[in-house]
Design a protein around this nucleic acid. Structure first.
Length: 569
RNA sequence: CGGGGCGUAGCGCAGCCCGGUUAGCGCGCCUGCUUCGGGAGUAGGAAGUCGGAGGUUCAAAUCCUCUCGCCCCGACCA
């Protein structure tokens, strides 16, 4: 491609609405342009990178026997009523009406559609297993789209779905898929890790995320040197060691804590560390009331609580309901003397406590020296706190968890029969019995990967593409456009590399060399072939390595071999 | 959805509080001359519904009301 003829606009400055490096650089280097919040066009440079990633994804999917298809974007809303996901997705689903007033959704993922396809054709266990995939634009009306294509409302995703007669078969595909994801990310040059994750709206139990390490990623990963690694939404830990303990008293002592509602206020007021306090958080699950007890300085992980209660719709009590249940204003709830049918869930980190300070279920009062098992009974003991950096690892119990940030690039799920049951998708097994498909689904964020690759490696000059997904393998930069020999060399190297199948960008713009150098750095092509008057006279050209910021002089004749060697390494 | 911020030329911004004639600056863009290996200099030039609608006023980018859009923070901390 000749830059003089190409649609490759670059900016010196970042648009003011871009926050993180990848977003700024994608705008500055002319990869994308925003249409409206969370909706982007890909310009030629961005589109090339997207294609290269898609290509790698296809190869890895095909390698493990997946078959590519293309499903519609427009989905009749009845499908979501059937699967029960209408309310799960809620406002995140983009919906529209046709001229007759019938409702449709723009596909956020395709479990429903693919299950509808499978139930029509797959009738026998002999046709199983099957794995279908597609690379298609997806729509989700995100609460808060941000960071450019990193969290967009319209984005490109590879989604695969597998159908099985047995859990063993699913497990095999699941393992293959995990391996394919790891290979895909490795081939894209992205340092990644597979972690246990939270299932979110897709459902199912077993699921793993593939996270690419990046400073500005939205995912938090907790890692232990013993090998334990998990998403912070799901990670388990033993908390931090207690510095001091509250003494148990003969019977709970009621202390006056006027207007002291937060843990911070109460612990300051009583002059004890927040770890002495036990936070009582009140929830409603169906018709039953739930009190959750966790250490004062900890955060409750609602997703864990949902799982413990087996209820995706758990919600915190509102202030007036708190008053009804405890008889006190919000801020003074405690486990002692709650109505008998209240479920009391206690986090295991509280086992280490002797006494506790808890709300008194009376406005402006707390109880000191409370003992669990004597003053109140726990209904259940379950891990519900959010793990944090610095916690003791639950797996090995003597190492400390470290935090690393990253971008969620892939997410794979064992769905079991969640969708096949909801949508009555069945086949006959070898005994002639009707059974529901056992399913898996596997998503990969293709457009997000473009941003993640930039996020994972850039410098103050611009992007540094990994070799495998770079939009161009080399950029040819003639320094002096008015010099005939320079231009002749530029044209011949450009032609030579192109004929050999390399993607080459020729910067034939009639502009100053400095501008070209800056732009070349910005768009991050791994190899720059600089053609200068002096070195050309000696039959040499300069090769500049973007990643290492290093220049080499080589013979003009050796260019093709040099490029070939660079990319085969 | 709650809170905060911002909409002025393709991009980055000033002007607004305290209303006043042709609305500025930098980058970019066009033309000429000089320059030419790390975002050139110079002379000239094009480009704006001041997000939109309504209002106040002799007069509105500026004040008031409504509205649309964009960005950030939050949406468990009792």
């Amino acid at each position: 491609m000749r830059w003089s003829k190409a649609y490759l606009p670059t900016y010196k400055e970042s648009p003011s609405d871009a926050e993180i490096p990848s977003h700024k650089l994608m705008m500055r280097a002319g990869l994308i342009r925003k249409l409206t919040a969370g909706v982007y066009s890909f310009l030629p440079l961005g589109w090339r990178v997207l294609h290269k990633i898609e290509h790698i994804v296809r190869e890895e999917m095909d390698r493990i026997g997946c078959q590519e298809i293309m499903m519609p974007i427009l989905h009749p809303s009845e499908l979501y009523e059937e699967s029960g996901r209408l309310k799960h997705f809620g406002p995140e689903l983009f919906t529209l009406k046709d001229r007759r007033g019938r409702f449709f959704a723009l596909g956020p993922t395709h479990e429903e559609v693919v299950t509808d396809i499978a139930r029509a054709e797959i009738k026998s266990y002999r046709q199983l297993p099957q794995t279908l995939y597609q690379i298609l634009v997806k729509f989700r009306d995100e609460i808060r789209p941000r960071f450019g294509v990193m969290r967009a409302r319209e984005f490109i995703m590879k989604d695969a779905y597998s159908f099985h007669e047995s859990h063993e078969s699913l497990a095999e595909t699941y393992t293959n898929m995990a391996e394919a994801y790891r290979r895909t990310l490795d081939r894209c040059g992205l340092e990644n890790v597979m972690v246990e994750a939270d299932a979110g709206k897709i459902g199912g139990d077993v699921n793993h995320e593939f996270v690419v390490f990046a400073e500005h990623g939205e995912s938090e990963i907790l890692i232990c040197s013993c090998g334990y690694v998990a998403n912070s939404e799901r990670a388990e830990s033993l908390g931090k060691p207690l510095a001091s303990k509250e003494k148990v008293q003969k019977k709970p002592e009621q202390v006056s804590t006027p207007k002291m509602k937060t843990v911070e206020q109460v612990s300051n007021f009583l002059d004890v560390s927040p770890a002495h306090l036990v936070k009582t958080m009140l929830y409603k699950s169906g018709d039953s009331m739930v009190a959750v007890l966790i250490p004062g300085e900890r955060t409750l992980n609602e997703s864990k609580l949902s799982k413990v209660l087996d209820d995706p719709y758990v919600e915190p009590l509102r202030d007036d309901d708190i008053k009804k249940l405890t008889g006190a204003e919000a801020g003074y709830a405690g486990p002692v003397g709650l109505p008998g049918d209240t479920r009391i869930i206690v986090d295991p980190t509280l086992d280490e406590y002797d006494g506790m300070i808890v709300g008194a279920n009376a406005t402006d009062a707390h109880l000191r020296g409370v003992k669990m098992g004597r003053d109140f009974e726990a209904t259940e003991r379950a891990d519900v706190i959010a793990a944090e950096e610095g916690d003791r690892c639950k797996r090995c119990s003597d190492q400390i968890l470290q935090l690393r940030r990253g971008v969620e690039m892939g997410h794979i799920f064992k769905l079991d029969t969640k969708y096949s049951k909801a949508m009555s998708a069945t086949f006959l097994d070898n005994e002639g019995k009707e059974r529901h498909f056992i399913m898996g689904c596997y998503g990969f964020g293709v457009s997000r990967a473009v941003a993640a690759a930039i996020e994972a490696d850039y410098d103050d000059k611009g992007i540094r593409w990994p070799k495998t997904i770079t939009p161009f393998h080399a950029i040819v930069l003639p320094v002096k456009m008015s010099d005939a020999d320079t231009m002749m060399a530029a044209e011949s190297i450009y032609a030579e590399l192109r004929e050999a199948g390399w993607d080459v960008l020729l910067d034939d713009r009639d502009t100053r060399a400095g501008v070209k150098f800056k732009d070349a750095d910005l768009i991050g092509i791994p190899l720059r072939i600089t053609l200068g008057e002096r070195s050309l006279k000696e039959g040499k050209v300069e090769i500049y390595h973007r990643r290492d910021d290093r220049t080499e002089l080589i013979d003009r004749e050796g260019v093709l071999d040099y490029v070939r060697e660079f990319y085969s390494a």
